[in-house]
Structures are given as C-alpha cells and as structure tokens.
Simulated scan of single mutants.
Amino acid sequence: MGGSSDDEDEQDMQNRLFRGLFGDETTGADDEDDDGLVSKHTWTLPSEEEVSLVYHLAFLAPGHGDALWNSAESIAEHIIVRGLRNDLFGDITWPPRRCIEFGAGAALPSLALIREGTHEVVISDMYVNDQAFDAIRMSVDANADAWGLSSEVINSRVSVVPHSWGEDIDKLCGSDGRADLLIASDCIYNPMHHRALLESAIGTMNDGGLFVVGYSFHGNVSPNEVLAFFDLALEFGLEVTNGLDVESDGQRGIGSNDASRGAVHLRVLEKR
C-alpha cells in the first residue's frame, strides 16, 4: 500500500507541474474538469463576433491537444465565413459530405465543419492518452448542445478515432468510404512524418477530393525542408491548386511573438 500511495503522490505532483507549465495556455479558460487537467475555452470568430466555438485543451497531451494553433484557427475561419471559404476552396459543393481531420489536437476545424452541416466528420490524432480524446469529445458535446443537436444525431455524424499516420486506415474510412475533404493543421513541421501523412491522406481521399494543409514555420527545420512536403505530395498524385497566406502577430501554440513564426500558410491539394 505504501507503493500505491507513493505513486499517487507522484502523479499528483506531475499533474500540478503540468498545470503550472501550461498555465499561460489556459488564459481565458471558461472552466476545468474535476482533475483540473482539461480546460474549457471559447473561440470567437474574429470577423463575426456572434459566431463562437467551444473547445477543450488536455494538459497531459503535449503536442496533441494541449494548445490551439494559428493554422487551426485560420482554417476554421475559412470554413465558416463564406467569402473566405470561396477564396480558399473556390466553387465547390458545400458542405462536404465527409471530412477527415489529421493531427486534430483541439479539433477546431472539425467543430467548424460540424456547425456547417458536414454529413460525417472523422476527428483523428495519434493516441497519447485518454485525456486528449476525452477533451475532443467534450468539445463535440458542448457545441452540439449549444446548437440543439441530439446525441443520436451527433453520434451518427462524428467519430473520434486514434490514428498514427501511415498505419491502418480502415477506421478512418468506415462504412461510408473515402472523404471529400481532408484537413491537417500544423502537421508538416517535422519532415520525418511527411511520407506517413501522405500515405494516410491518399488512402482516405476520393478522386477529386481536396486536402487542406495549414502550416507555419516553427524554426525547428529550414522552410525548404517543410515545403518539401508539397514536392513529395506530387509523387502521390496530390497537386497544389490554391494557396493563401495569413499574417499574424505571433504563434499561439509555441508562445512566440515573432510574426514570421505566426504567419499561416494555407494550401489546397487536389487528388488527380
């Protein structure tokens, strides 16, 4: 019993440490769960103040749901605002029938798609711990409640699925098959994972489907190494058909005030 108590004390110390380390990330948080390890936030659409989304952050999932990144905010805004959506996607049937988000984290773009009426939204990220996925489900439920969507409706439209890029895609495709729209926010900063992400993307897209990739230059590697993703994408039959660049004062996810690191680059790839 002494060992169990020691383990609990150590876990409690770790939890308090994480709360302290990520305290700046929860500024403006609305609420926290019972353990204080999942925080509730409200994101208000910059261009339309009456539109807002609730999202949650999981402190014990660093890099996978502990922060909201600029590119996720930018993609969500381009999904909701019609004029921005047309600038990014052009003339497409809206809303898409089926969407998959890779490396979702706080899953803001997926929440925006649910609001827009997308028939099926698959929210995926690498499994780190249960908390990260609990936070996503809390976000889905909170917004569904605000929008008057029943649990039956939301369960039929939304799936939260653990997925490591380049591995089994069966759970992503499900019974309805491949997706019309894929989204990846701040997923290409590490060139080591480019090929795996593209393998998952090409395996889950319909012909003519679109893949929206949002990224910033984090400084961990050279910009050319990040941009090599798009050269590799051509080998997979994915071609960039449109792109937008969005300026920012700094990068929320890495706590940087450097505008060059906060700028978001959005690229739309089409499966040929």
Results as ranks from 00 to 15, higher is better:
residue 101 E to H: 03
residue 88 L to Y: 04
residue 78 H to A: 11
residue 95 P to L: 05
residue 79 I to E: 04
residue 102 F to E: 03
residue 103 G to S: 08
residue 105 G to R: 00
residue 78 H to V: 10
residue 107 A to G: 00
residue 113 L to H: 07
residue 107 A to Y: 00
residue 109 P to C: 03
residue 101 E to M: 03
residue 91 D to T: 11
residue 85 R to S: 13
residue 91 D to K: 12
residue 78 H to D: 08
residue 93 T to Y: 02
residue 117 G to S: 13
residue 79 I to F: 14
residue 84 L to E: 13
residue 89 F to W: 08
residue 109 P to R: 05
residue 88 L to S: 05
residue 115 R to T: 07
residue 77 E to K: 13
residue 104 A to E: 01
residue 87 D to Q: 14
residue 116 E to D: 12
residue 110 S to T: 03
residue 98 R to C: 05
residue 99 C to N: 05
residue 107 A to I: 00
residue 95 P to A: 09
residue 92 I to E: 09
residue 116 E to V: 05
residue 93 T to M: 06
residue 73 E to V: 12
residue 110 S to Q: 04
residue 86 N to K: 15
residue 110 S to R: 03
residue 106 A to P: 02
residue 101 E to I: 05
residue 75 I to R: 01
residue 114 I to K: 03
residue 95 P to C: 10
residue 92 I to D: 06
residue 105 G to D: 01
residue 107 A to S: 10
residue 83 G to S: 15
residue 85 R to W: 08
residue 75 I to V: 14
residue 104 A to S: 13
residue 108 L to H: 05
residue 117 G to K: 12
residue 112 A to Q: 03
residue 105 G to V: 00
residue 103 G to R: 04
residue 116 E to Q: 11
residue 86 N to T: 14
residue 76 A to I: 08
residue 91 D to E: 12
residue 77 E to N: 13
residue 87 D to C: 11
residue 101 E to S: 04
residue 92 I to R: 13
residue 74 S to H: 06
residue 111 L to G: 04
residue 110 S to A: 13
residue 106 A to N: 00
residue 96 P to Y: 07
residue 101 E to A: 02
residue 76 A to T: 10
residue 84 L to I: 11
residue 95 P to T: 10
residue 87 D to Y: 09
residue 106 A to K: 00
residue 96 P to F: 05
residue 99 C to P: 02
residue 111 L to M: 12
residue 94 W to I: 01
residue 97 R to C: 08
residue 116 E to G: 04
residue 93 T to R: 10
residue 89 F to I: 05
residue 103 G to I: 02
residue 74 S to G: 00
residue 98 R to S: 13
residue 111 L to Q: 08
residue 111 L to F: 07
residue 87 D to E: 14
residue 93 T to G: 05
residue 88 L to I: 08
residue 85 R to K: 14
residue 74 S to V: 15
residue 93 T to P: 01
residue 78 H to G: 08
residue 112 A to M: 04
residue 110 S to V: 02
residue 111 L to K: 06
residue 108 L to E: 01
residue 80 I to C: 14
residue 107 A to Q: 01
residue 113 L to K: 06
residue 89 F to A: 03
residue 110 S to Y: 01
residue 73 E to W: 00
residue 85 R to H: 13
residue 96 P to A: 13
residue 83 G to R: 15
residue 109 P to H: 06
residue 86 N to I: 11
residue 80 I to P: 07
residue 80 I to E: 14
residue 88 L to R: 08
residue 89 F to T: 06
residue 75 I to M: 07
residue 83 G to T: 15
residue 88 L to P: 05
residue 110 S to W: 01
residue 75 I to D: 00
residue 113 L to Q: 08
residue 78 H to C: 11
residue 103 G to D: 00
residue 76 A to S: 15
residue 88 L to V: 04
residue 100 I to C: 12
residue 92 I to Q: 11
residue 91 D to S: 14
residue 81 V to L: 15
residue 105 G to P: 01
residue 74 S to F: 00
residue 114 I to E: 04
residue 97 R to W: 06
residue 79 I to L: 14
residue 100 I to F: 09
residue 106 A to V: 02
residue 100 I to P: 03
residue 78 H to F: 14
residue 95 P to Q: 07
residue 104 A to Q: 02
residue 92 I to N: 05
residue 83 G to N: 15
residue 104 A to T: 02
residue 115 R to C: 07
residue 93 T to L: 09
residue 116 E to L: 12
residue 84 L to W: 11
